[in-house]
Computed example of a mutant assay.
Amino acid sequence: MTLRIVSSEHVELHTQAFGDPTHPPVLLVMGMMASMLWWPQGLCEALARSGRYVIRYDQRDTGLSTNCPPGEPNYGMLDLAEDVFLIADAYGFDALHLVGMSMGGMVVQRAALAHPERVLSLCLVGTSPLGLDGLPPMDAAYAEHCETGESVNWSDPDAALDYVSRDVAAVASTRHPHDAAAAREFVRGDIARARNFASATNHFVLVDGDDTQFRHVRELKMPVLAIHGSSDPIFPIGHAEALVAAVNGAKLLRVEGGGHDLHPADWAAITEAIVAHTG
Protein backbone atom coordinates (compact mmCIF):
# COMPACT_ATOMS: atom_id res chain seq x y z
CA MET A 1 0.00 0.00 0.00
CA THR A 2 1.18 3.50 -0.85
CA LEU A 3 -0.16 6.72 0.66
CA ARG A 4 0.08 9.92 -1.35
CA ILE A 5 -1.26 13.45 -0.95
CA VAL A 6 -2.41 14.92 -4.27
CA SER A 7 -2.79 18.68 -4.26
CA SER A 8 -3.43 21.72 -6.40
CA GLU A 9 -3.93 25.37 -5.64
CA HIS A 10 -7.46 24.69 -4.41
CA VAL A 11 -7.57 21.20 -2.94
CA GLU A 12 -5.61 18.53 -1.09
CA LEU A 13 -6.71 14.93 -1.54
CA HIS A 14 -5.46 11.98 0.48
CA THR A 15 -5.05 8.86 -1.63
CA GLN A 16 -3.94 5.26 -1.17
CA ALA A 17 -2.81 2.81 -3.84
CA PHE A 18 -2.67 -0.99 -3.89
CA GLY A 19 -0.78 -3.28 -6.23
CA ASP A 20 1.60 -2.92 -9.15
CA PRO A 21 1.55 0.51 -10.90
CA THR A 22 2.29 -1.17 -14.23
CA HIS A 23 -1.09 -2.94 -14.07
CA PRO A 24 -4.31 -1.37 -15.42
CA PRO A 25 -5.25 1.58 -13.17
CA VAL A 26 -8.62 1.53 -11.40
CA LEU A 27 -9.72 4.61 -9.44
CA LEU A 28 -12.40 4.05 -6.77
CA VAL A 29 -14.71 6.99 -6.00
CA MET A 30 -16.91 6.64 -2.91
CA GLY A 31 -20.28 8.20 -2.14
CA MET A 32 -21.88 10.88 -0.04
CA MET A 33 -20.24 11.63 3.33
CA ALA A 34 -18.00 8.56 2.89
CA SER A 35 -14.22 8.57 3.10
CA MET A 36 -12.05 6.20 1.09
CA LEU A 37 -12.24 3.70 3.97
CA TRP A 38 -15.74 2.78 2.80
CA TRP A 39 -13.97 0.99 -0.06
CA PRO A 40 -13.01 -1.99 2.12
CA GLN A 41 -9.30 -2.70 2.24
CA GLY A 42 -10.00 -6.40 1.63
CA LEU A 43 -11.82 -5.58 -1.60
CA CYS A 44 -9.01 -3.26 -2.73
CA GLU A 45 -6.43 -5.96 -2.01
CA ALA A 46 -8.48 -8.57 -3.88
CA LEU A 47 -8.58 -6.33 -6.96
CA ALA A 48 -4.82 -5.74 -6.67
CA ARG A 49 -4.14 -9.48 -6.41
CA SER A 50 -6.21 -9.89 -9.57
CA GLY A 51 -3.87 -7.66 -11.56
CA ARG A 52 -5.25 -4.17 -11.08
CA TYR A 53 -3.53 -1.07 -9.71
CA VAL A 54 -6.17 0.25 -7.32
CA ILE A 55 -6.39 3.81 -6.02
CA ARG A 56 -8.89 5.02 -3.43
CA TYR A 57 -9.11 8.50 -1.97
CA ASP A 58 -10.93 10.80 0.42
CA GLN A 59 -13.20 13.10 -1.53
CA ARG A 60 -13.40 16.72 -0.43
CA ASP A 61 -14.98 17.12 3.00
CA THR A 62 -14.29 13.51 3.96
CA GLY A 63 -11.44 11.87 5.84
CA LEU A 64 -8.16 13.76 5.68
CA SER A 65 -8.81 15.71 2.49
CA THR A 66 -9.60 19.42 2.21
CA ASN A 67 -12.72 20.40 4.09
CA CYS A 68 -14.96 23.46 4.16
CA PRO A 69 -17.03 24.79 7.06
CA PRO A 70 -20.32 22.89 7.36
CA GLY A 71 -22.91 24.46 5.09
CA GLU A 72 -20.31 26.40 3.10
CA PRO A 73 -18.85 24.19 0.35
CA ASN A 74 -16.75 26.16 -2.11
CA TYR A 75 -17.06 23.50 -4.82
CA GLY A 76 -19.70 21.65 -6.82
CA MET A 77 -20.19 18.25 -8.41
CA LEU A 78 -18.17 19.19 -11.48
CA ASP A 79 -15.23 20.07 -9.22
CA LEU A 80 -15.42 16.58 -7.73
CA ALA A 81 -15.39 15.18 -11.26
CA GLU A 82 -12.26 17.18 -12.09
CA ASP A 83 -10.58 15.85 -8.93
CA VAL A 84 -10.60 12.45 -10.63
CA PHE A 85 -8.17 13.74 -13.26
CA LEU A 86 -6.08 15.62 -10.73
CA ILE A 87 -5.40 12.22 -9.16
CA ALA A 88 -4.83 10.59 -12.55
CA ASP A 89 -2.25 13.24 -13.42
CA ALA A 90 -0.49 12.89 -10.06
CA TYR A 91 -0.14 9.14 -10.59
CA GLY A 92 0.98 9.60 -14.19
CA PHE A 93 -2.05 8.16 -16.03
CA ASP A 94 -3.44 9.74 -19.19
CA ALA A 95 -6.51 7.51 -18.88
CA LEU A 96 -7.85 5.05 -16.32
CA HIS A 97 -10.80 2.90 -15.32
CA LEU A 98 -13.32 4.58 -13.01
CA VAL A 99 -15.45 2.80 -10.40
CA GLY A 100 -17.96 4.96 -8.54
CA MET A 101 -20.43 4.04 -5.83
CA SER A 102 -23.60 5.96 -4.93
CA MET A 103 -22.79 9.70 -5.24
CA GLY A 104 -19.36 8.57 -6.45
CA GLY A 105 -21.14 6.94 -9.38
CA MET A 106 -22.63 10.31 -10.28
CA VAL A 107 -19.20 11.92 -9.98
CA VAL A 108 -17.59 9.43 -12.37
CA GLN A 109 -20.44 9.78 -14.86
CA ARG A 110 -19.78 13.51 -14.96
CA ALA A 111 -16.05 12.86 -15.29
CA ALA A 112 -16.61 10.46 -18.19
CA LEU A 113 -18.95 12.86 -19.97
CA ALA A 114 -16.57 15.78 -19.55
CA HIS A 115 -13.38 13.95 -20.58
CA PRO A 116 -14.31 10.70 -22.36
CA GLU A 117 -10.84 10.34 -23.85
CA ARG A 118 -9.41 9.89 -20.36
CA VAL A 119 -11.82 7.18 -19.17
CA LEU A 120 -11.10 3.62 -20.28
CA SER A 121 -14.24 2.16 -18.74
CA LEU A 122 -16.91 3.02 -16.22
CA CYS A 123 -18.25 0.82 -13.42
CA LEU A 124 -21.27 2.22 -11.57
CA VAL A 125 -22.07 0.64 -8.21
CA GLY A 126 -25.36 1.28 -6.42
CA THR A 127 -25.96 4.58 -8.16
CA SER A 128 -28.37 6.36 -10.50
CA PRO A 129 -27.99 7.29 -14.17
CA LEU A 130 -27.75 10.97 -14.99
CA GLY A 131 -30.46 12.53 -17.11
CA LEU A 132 -33.04 9.73 -17.02
CA ASP A 133 -36.60 10.32 -15.85
CA GLY A 134 -39.19 7.96 -14.39
CA LEU A 135 -36.81 6.13 -12.05
CA PRO A 136 -38.21 4.27 -9.02
CA PRO A 137 -38.27 6.26 -5.76
CA MET A 138 -36.31 5.63 -2.61
CA ASP A 139 -37.75 3.01 -0.25
CA ALA A 140 -40.34 4.70 1.99
CA ALA A 141 -38.88 3.37 5.24
CA TYR A 142 -35.42 4.56 4.30
CA ALA A 143 -36.77 7.97 3.30
CA GLU A 144 -38.33 8.25 6.76
CA HIS A 145 -34.97 7.38 8.31
CA CYS A 146 -33.27 10.10 6.22
CA GLU A 147 -35.66 12.71 7.56
CA THR A 148 -34.34 12.10 11.07
CA GLY A 149 -30.88 13.08 9.84
CA GLU A 150 -31.98 16.70 9.68
CA SER A 151 -32.06 16.88 13.47
CA VAL A 152 -28.64 15.28 14.05
CA ASN A 153 -25.94 17.42 15.63
CA TRP A 154 -23.19 16.35 13.25
CA SER A 155 -20.52 18.10 15.31
CA ASP A 156 -21.25 15.69 18.17
CA PRO A 157 -19.29 12.48 17.44
CA ASP A 158 -21.66 10.33 19.49
CA ALA A 159 -24.74 11.66 17.71
CA ALA A 160 -23.08 11.18 14.33
CA LEU A 161 -22.02 7.66 15.33
CA ASP A 162 -25.55 6.69 16.31
CA TYR A 163 -27.12 8.01 13.11
CA VAL A 164 -24.55 6.61 10.69
CA SER A 165 -24.64 3.22 12.44
CA ARG A 166 -28.42 3.14 11.98
CA ASP A 167 -27.95 4.18 8.37
CA VAL A 168 -25.51 1.34 7.69
CA ALA A 169 -28.00 -1.14 9.14
CA ALA A 170 -30.83 0.34 7.07
CA VAL A 171 -28.99 -0.16 3.78
CA ALA A 172 -27.41 -3.53 4.59
CA SER A 173 -27.75 -6.68 2.52
CA THR A 174 -30.94 -8.65 3.10
CA ARG A 175 -29.19 -11.88 2.11
CA HIS A 176 -26.17 -11.84 4.40
CA PRO A 177 -26.03 -11.13 8.15
CA HIS A 178 -25.26 -7.59 9.27
CA ASP A 179 -22.55 -7.31 11.95
CA ALA A 180 -23.84 -4.28 13.85
CA ALA A 181 -20.99 -4.21 16.38
CA ALA A 182 -18.28 -4.32 13.70
CA ALA A 183 -20.09 -1.69 11.65
CA ARG A 184 -20.34 0.63 14.64
CA GLU A 185 -16.63 0.31 15.37
CA PHE A 186 -15.81 1.01 11.75
CA VAL A 187 -17.97 4.15 11.77
CA ARG A 188 -16.40 5.26 15.06
CA GLY A 189 -12.96 5.02 13.47
CA ASP A 190 -14.05 6.85 10.33
CA ILE A 191 -15.44 9.73 12.39
CA ALA A 192 -12.32 9.91 14.54
CA ARG A 193 -10.05 9.96 11.49
CA ALA A 194 -11.85 12.84 9.77
CA ARG A 195 -10.51 16.37 9.97
CA ASN A 196 -14.06 17.54 10.60
CA PHE A 197 -16.74 14.91 10.13
CA ALA A 198 -19.53 17.53 10.17
CA SER A 199 -18.09 19.01 6.95
CA ALA A 200 -19.17 15.86 5.10
CA THR A 201 -22.76 17.13 5.31
CA ASN A 202 -21.75 19.64 2.63
CA HIS A 203 -22.34 16.82 0.15
CA PHE A 204 -26.07 17.22 0.71
CA VAL A 205 -26.08 20.70 -0.84
CA LEU A 206 -23.74 20.31 -3.81
CA VAL A 207 -24.83 21.61 -7.21
CA ASP A 208 -23.38 21.34 -10.69
CA GLY A 209 -22.59 25.05 -10.98
CA ASP A 210 -21.45 25.71 -14.53
CA ASP A 211 -23.35 23.02 -16.41
CA THR A 212 -21.78 23.54 -19.81
CA GLN A 213 -20.12 20.11 -19.50
CA PHE A 214 -23.23 18.35 -18.25
CA ARG A 215 -24.74 16.04 -20.84
CA HIS A 216 -26.81 12.86 -20.85
CA VAL A 217 -25.86 9.36 -19.74
CA ARG A 218 -26.81 8.09 -23.21
CA GLU A 219 -23.70 9.86 -24.53
CA LEU A 220 -21.38 7.47 -22.69
CA LYS A 221 -19.35 5.58 -25.29
CA MET A 222 -16.82 3.71 -23.14
CA PRO A 223 -17.67 0.23 -21.75
CA VAL A 224 -20.13 0.55 -18.85
CA LEU A 225 -20.85 -1.97 -16.12
CA ALA A 226 -23.52 -1.54 -13.44
CA ILE A 227 -23.18 -3.45 -10.17
CA HIS A 228 -26.33 -3.16 -8.12
CA GLY A 229 -27.95 -4.83 -5.15
CA SER A 230 -31.44 -6.18 -5.76
CA SER A 231 -32.51 -4.85 -2.33
CA ASP A 232 -30.92 -1.39 -2.50
CA PRO A 233 -33.31 0.93 -0.60
CA ILE A 234 -31.72 4.19 -1.81
CA PHE A 235 -31.56 3.50 -5.53
CA PRO A 236 -33.81 0.52 -6.29
CA ILE A 237 -32.53 -1.95 -8.89
CA GLY A 238 -34.65 -0.19 -11.51
CA HIS A 239 -32.03 2.57 -11.63
CA ALA A 240 -29.41 0.10 -12.87
CA GLU A 241 -31.85 -1.53 -15.27
CA ALA A 242 -32.69 1.88 -16.76
CA LEU A 243 -28.99 2.65 -17.12
CA VAL A 244 -28.31 -0.59 -18.96
CA ALA A 245 -31.28 0.02 -21.26
CA ALA A 246 -30.10 3.57 -22.04
CA VAL A 247 -26.38 2.96 -22.65
CA ASN A 248 -25.42 0.93 -25.68
CA GLY A 249 -23.59 -2.24 -24.68
CA ALA A 250 -23.85 -1.66 -20.91
CA LYS A 251 -23.93 -4.72 -18.68
CA LEU A 252 -25.43 -5.42 -15.25
CA LEU A 253 -24.20 -7.53 -12.36
CA ARG A 254 -27.24 -8.01 -10.16
CA VAL A 255 -26.17 -8.73 -6.58
CA GLU A 256 -29.02 -10.79 -5.18
CA GLY A 257 -30.13 -9.47 -1.80
CA GLY A 258 -27.49 -6.77 -1.93
CA GLY A 259 -28.31 -3.49 -0.29
CA HIS A 260 -26.54 -0.16 -0.68
CA ASP A 261 -23.37 -1.77 0.59
CA LEU A 262 -20.30 -3.85 -0.22
CA HIS A 263 -20.83 -6.94 1.91
CA PRO A 264 -17.74 -9.17 2.29
CA ALA A 265 -19.73 -12.17 1.07
CA ASP A 266 -20.17 -10.39 -2.29
CA TRP A 267 -16.55 -9.27 -2.76
CA ALA A 268 -15.54 -12.27 -4.88
CA ALA A 269 -18.32 -11.68 -7.41
CA ILE A 270 -17.70 -7.93 -7.45
CA THR A 271 -13.97 -8.41 -7.91
CA GLU A 272 -14.46 -10.87 -10.74
CA ALA A 273 -16.86 -8.53 -12.53
CA ILE A 274 -14.61 -5.46 -12.20
CA VAL A 275 -11.52 -7.36 -13.32
CA ALA A 276 -13.35 -8.74 -16.37
CA HIS A 277 -14.70 -5.30 -17.21
CA THR A 278 -11.32 -3.56 -16.90
CA GLY A 279 -9.32 -6.18 -18.79
Rank of each mutant, 00 (worst) to 15 (best):
222 M>W: 14
138 M>H: 08
109 Q>N: 01
229 G>I: 01
115 H>S: 05
63 G>H: 00
121 S>I: 13
97 H>M: 11
22 T>G: 12
6 V>G: 07
42 G>D: 15
269 A>G: 01
145 H>D: 10
175 R>C: 04
259 G>N: 08
202 N>Y: 03
25 P>C: 12
195 R>Y: 00
126 G>W: 02
49 R>M: 14
255 V>C: 15
119 V>H: 02
253 L>T: 14
3 L>C: 09
26 V>H: 06
152 V>D: 01
254 R>N: 10
268 A>V: 09
211 D>W: 01
188 R>T: 13
205 V>P: 00
30 M>D: 10
48 A>I: 14
259 G>H: 07
9 E>M: 13
243 L>E: 00
33 M>C: 07
54 V>N: 07
227 I>P: 06
142 Y>I: 13
240 A>P: 06
172 A>H: 04
46 A>W: 06
38 W>E: 03
168 V>N: 08
208 D>Y: 04
177 P>D: 12
216 H>T: 12
194 A>C: 08
26 V>P: 05
45 E>Y: 04
100 G>W: 00
221 K>E: 15
200 A>W: 00
160 A>Q: 02
54 V>I: 14
50 S>H: 10
112 A>P: 09
198 A>C: 02
20 D>I: 09
218 R>Y: 00
225 L>I: 06
103 M>N: 08
42 G>T: 14
163 Y>D: 03
114 A>I: 03
226 A>V: 14
188 R>P: 06
263 H>M: 01
187 V>F: 13
166 R>E: 12
199 S>D: 02
150 E>A: 15
244 V>E: 03
66 T>E: 04
85 F>G: 03
52 R>P: 12
112 A>L: 02
2 T>F: 04
116 P>C: 04
21 P>L: 07
19 G>Q: 04
262 L>K: 03
20 D>S: 08
235 F>R: 00
264 P>D: 04
2 T>D: 00
171 V>P: 06
77 M>N: 01
274 I>S: 01
100 G>Y: 00
156 D>C: 08
123 C>V: 15
279 G>K: 07
105 G>L: 11
61 D>K: 05
162 D>S: 11
95 A>E: 05
169 A>V: 12
223 P>Q: 11
277 H>W: 08
212 T>W: 02
53 Y>T: 05
234 I>N: 03
9 E>Q: 10
225 L>N: 12
200 A>D: 01
279 G>E: 14
100 G>L: 04
279 G>A: 15
209 G>M: 10
236 P>C: 04
5 I>K: 09
189 G>V: 14
200 A>C: 11
64 L>P: 05
48 A>C: 13
78 L>C: 03
16 Q>C: 12
29 V>L: 10
216 H>K: 05
8 S>R: 00
211 D>N: 06
10 H>M: 13
176 H>L: 15
241 E>Q: 07
44 C>S: 11
168 V>E: 05
5 I>V: 11
34 A>F: 04
267 W>F: 12
39 W>N: 09
272 E>N: 09
36 M>V: 08
193 R>I: 09
60 R>M: 01
252 L>H: 03
91 Y>S: 07
225 L>M: 11
1 M>K: 00
144 E>Y: 00
108 V>P: 01
247 V>K: 07
139 D>M: 08
171 V>E: 06
235 F>W: 07
86 L>R: 12
50 S>N: 11
32 M>K: 10
273 A>Q: 07
87 I>T: 07
261 D>T: 09
203 H>M: 03
182 A>K: 11
60 R>A: 10
189 G>F: 13
163 Y>F: 14
196 N>P: 02
